[in-house]
Design a protein around this nucleic acid. Sequence first.
DNA 1: AAGGCGATTGCCT
DNA 2: GGCAATCGCCTTT
Length: 212
Amino acid sequence: MKSHGSFSRNISRSPLPKSFYQRPVDLVAAALLGKGLWVEHSDVKLLAEITEVEAYAFDDAASHSFRGPTKRNWPMFEEGGICYVYLIYGINLCANISTGEKGRGEAVLLRAAQPLIGVEWMRQKRNLPGRKGKEISDTRLLSGPGNLARGLGLTMSHNGLTFFGDTLRVVDLGNTVLPSEIARTPRIGISQSAELLRRYCIVGAPSLSRKG
DNA sequence: AAGGCGATTGCCT
DNA sequence: GGCAATCGCCTTT
């Protein structure tokens, strides 16, 4: 029986400690798989299981931080556990979690998650007025970085918030993701350092933005 | 001061 | 499978 989508677990409301993020970005990326992403809005509380992420290191040509701090990427240089939100292609938002010590310049991009709590709220966020086609299935609501940010209601107002506060949290879902269940692949949509295996995903998770 | 291009998505062919 | 939408940073005048 696969655990994805199940509620029969011991879900913690406590955010993971700062120390969780004070580690090399690739370790944090892999460790985030299977964890709960908790987002609180004034009218709703949301929870989703992280299934796909990408690691971006300071010495990585594909990373926003590669050329040093700017007005846009400054949260990447904060201490680990800070939210970095940016606009991509003028259309979509992407949410990241900074890692390492302050000044390091590394982050994990959140690419996909499985909705657990607040599913209908997420669907409303995705089904914006004017959208054609069929209703989006649960597993696709947070599939892809732009969709994840939109479905969870993340905006630029979340830029710079911590993931151990009231609004944003990463929590333990009481499950275990074995190393054999984790796949490493090239990152998606980049040209620099395209050969590096820094995309991490839970093998076979239905919410993945792409197979593998 | 201006133009190219990107860690994307959804619609159209 | 191709492409438009659309904003900010970086590179080049």
